[in-house]
Amino acid sequence: MSKNIILCGVGGQGTILASRLIASAAMKKNLPIKTAETIGMAQRGGSVFSHLRIGEDANTPLIAKGTADLIIGFEPGETVRQLPFLKKGGAVVVSSRPVMPVSAMIGKSTYDANAMLTYLKENVEHLTIVDADQAASDLGSAKTLNVVLLGAALRSGELGLGESEIIESMKERIPEKLWQLNFQSLNWSS
């Protein structure tokens, strides 16, 4: 089994933790793993992405265009931005909730998030749209969007990892007082 996975979103949305959870789950299965992350200035509200290559002896963590098995999108527009990386027939899990750039709020640029979701519906065969607002209101927190999306990715079958490994990694990386909320978040989309 080998999987190329891309996580994308806006700086501050928690893509790095989600990427870390997947990586340590892959390690538990003794699978080779390489990842690349965006760290630095772009974390301040810019576009961020993580590339993960699991289960093959890749020479670089970067994923070539048209070869990603799965894109976990934290934001509709950012997901469209990364879509050229998806392989034909690949899966996309995307949060419905847009993050409006400041430039759009002050009228210096435009951003139509609904058009992004429509574009994804038209161009992705295996698409899961996660209603992030509903999830946040059910769970009482918007902070676990990353884990909600991770749960949906698990159920897409394209992650190539089991729930037990993800839960084990969560226990290692998340403080115990937040376990219950995160377990609920992981199962929210089921």
Partner: peptide, 13 residues
């Protein structure tokens, strides 16, 4: 892929 809608512009802020 067909041409996507205008992508959001996100300089760091």
């Amino acid at each position: 892929l067909p041409e996507p809608p205008a992508l959001p512009v996100r300089p760091p802020v």
